[in-house]
Computed example of a mutant assay.
Amino acid sequence: MALGEAVAAEIDDRFRALRKAGTVSAISGIKLWVLVDGGSMLLPKYRHVSAVVGDEVDVDTSRAGAWVVVGVLG
């Protein structure tokens, strides 16, 4: 593997590590209860996210303690 390809692969891996997939288990006002990493978390979402119970969602985990739902997968 060339150096450029190795660097690109490492960057891709690091960005992928900043996102997690979860499943919406309930809706509480403007926040979502999401099953992620084996637990349930009440997370805020961006305004454009229109998720319903059962949807698989994309969670931005780049800020410790400030995870946010950024989209619906699929």
Rank of each mutant, 00 (worst) to 15 (best):
F15Y: 12
A51C: 04
G39E: 15
I27V: 14
M41Y: 12
G22M: 00
A21W: 08
K45N: 05
R47E: 11
V36G: 03
K31F: 04
A21F: 11
P44H: 00
R14V: 13
L43M: 07
A26R: 13
K20M: 10
R16Q: 09
V24W: 01
V49P: 06
S40M: 11
V34H: 00
H48V: 08
V34M: 02
T23P: 07
S50W: 03
A26D: 13
A21T: 15
G29S: 04
S50L: 10
S50K: 13
L35H: 13
V49Q: 01
V24E: 01
S28F: 05
S50G: 09
I30K: 11
L35P: 02
G39A: 15
V24Y: 05
G38I: 06
I27A: 09
K20V: 10
K31N: 14
D37S: 14
H48Y: 11
G22Q: 00
W33K: 07
G39S: 15
R16H: 07
G39C: 11
M41S: 15
P44Y: 03
L32P: 06
L32N: 04
W33M: 12
S28H: 11
S50I: 03
F15L: 14
S25R: 05
V49T: 03
G22F: 00
L35M: 12
S25L: 03
S50D: 13
S50Q: 11
G29N: 03
L18D: 07
K31A: 13
A17F: 08
G29C: 00
I27W: 02
K45M: 05
F15N: 04
H48R: 09
V36Y: 03
A51L: 02
V49K: 02
V49F: 05
T23D: 06
P44V: 06
I27G: 03
V34A: 02
S28L: 10
L32D: 01
S40C: 10
W33S: 06
P44A: 02
